[in-house]
Design a protein around this nucleic acid. Sequence first.
RNA 1: GGCCCUGUCGUCUAGGGGCCUAGGACACUGGCCUUUCACGCCGGUAACACGGGUUCGAAUCCCGUCAGGGUCACCA
Length: 519
Amino acid sequence: MTVRTRFAPSPTGYLHIGGVRTALFNWLFARQRGGQFILRIDDTDVARNVDEALEPILSGLKWLGIDWDEGPGVGGPHAPYFQSQRADRHRAAVDTLLASGHAYRDFATTAELDEERKAAQAAGKPFLYSRAFAAFTEADVARFTAEGRQSVVRLKMPRESALVIDDAVRGRVEFAWEREQDHVIQRADGSCLYHLASVVDDHDLEITHVIRAEEHLSNTPRQAFIALSLGYELPAYAHLPLVAEPGSRTKLSKRKLAQYLKNPDFKQVAEHGTRIAERIGLTADAETFNPVIVDFYREVGYLPWAIDNYLALLGWSYDDKTEFFSRDELVSHFTLERINSSPASFDPKKLWAVQDHYMHGLSVDEKLAFMLPFLVKAKLVADPVPPEAAATVRRVIEASGDRLKVGGDILAYADFFLVDEPALDDAAVKQRLAKPGVRDLVAKYAAALQTVDPFEPAPLEESLKRVVEEAGVKVGDLVHAIRVAVTGKTVGPGLYDCLAILGRNRSLARIEKALPLCG
RNA sequence: GGCCCUGUCGUCUAGGGGCCUAGGACACUGGCCUUUCACGCCGGUAACACGGGUUCGAAUCCCGUCAGGGUCACCA
């Protein structure tokens, strides 16, 4: 049997980090088993702007390398892959259920239902609909209709015995049927509800394994009932542990951003990203740009595989040591059996560390290709990129080493090479330049710089050390001052690299300009 | 509240009766390296929720308690 899994997002306008984890696990399992991964859009009820709301989801998945065998953009033998376009299949299923007595038309009003619910609550009993307004015969229908009532279709759930499922993650789970409500599957206007649609679509698309988040575990009985009543074979279920808030076990949600920002790690990652976004002219609205949403990472310059690798470890592990996997390794190692069953909280710092690891592995040329677009977006280099600019950036990347953690970091490390007059950080000036004796020292090194040849790191270091020695001060005293004079900041690549990249003339010009600020 | 799920360092996890004085990673932290920052290297702090069983032996099995979470829509 060919394994077929699916990810069925609804077009909400953004791709949630928890959703990606679910998509990834479905994808990994399908790939591992040589099966198919299907993308279906559950757009029931979201009528407007589907295209617009879908785009971030599709592009996000593509960016992460989660490719689908059937679905939007690629089509497939079971088209359409939009739930809203399969409404006739859903209605047909409802009719079948009605005909077989597994569902009934219900004419109760909301008020009447509420009353029953309240009564049950008052009596301290779990609510179970009395079916007082259920129409089981044509006569019932005629009578209720005559009263001016409208009907919905409800499931006629069993009221004895139990459903047992063998969940791939949780093992045996049992649900007493009598605890299940007679859920509505079709509205008065004839449109169908999610659970019905989902079960019918999964069957039509020949989905063999339903891998989804734990929040759906309690929905399983009603879905199983629909499937069984329709004569379908039940898919295998795997309910993944929830992706929880940082440092908590509560489900991660986009809505509670303000709260997450109180977490120092989360805040740090969010602010770092926002800084980059601002420089590339992105409107960093927290609603659409934050560490819970995948686009955040793409814009800031994370590597897609770093996200995948990190997310794979959220609820799954291979052994007691291995943390980094190539794409092929992950695919071949992935099994449902090794999925954990307890919630896993999202740790942006750990993601950061994984990102650091993969960035580390990139060659200078790969980094250059990856980072140049950020400089273009920030208008620090022209488009198309002039060869000299690319050469400069290449040297900056080389000199920056492991300091560049995400693509957008190039902005902070390359800007002072690319602008004519870098802004001088006030605090840096105060700390490193405005001290007594600095001016004299800096002037001496400037003089030495006139004759350093070649103007490369090693000779530059030699001459600086000579100046320092003659003056009888510490190396740091001069280095820090020159760094601020030349770059405007206290942090950056090695100073001698900075000077060499800048060249003699620009270095001297900047030092001269900074001289009046020295103490 | 009913039903269901879950409980190992702050976090992700390994472990599934003796290999556990509980291992790895992130974070934190001490030190080294060093012109800043980062990297790297060496070290440290830190966990089996609790209580009963079963057993020669329990983090591992059973029961209970407690705690956390999910879900209970004419949302998906």
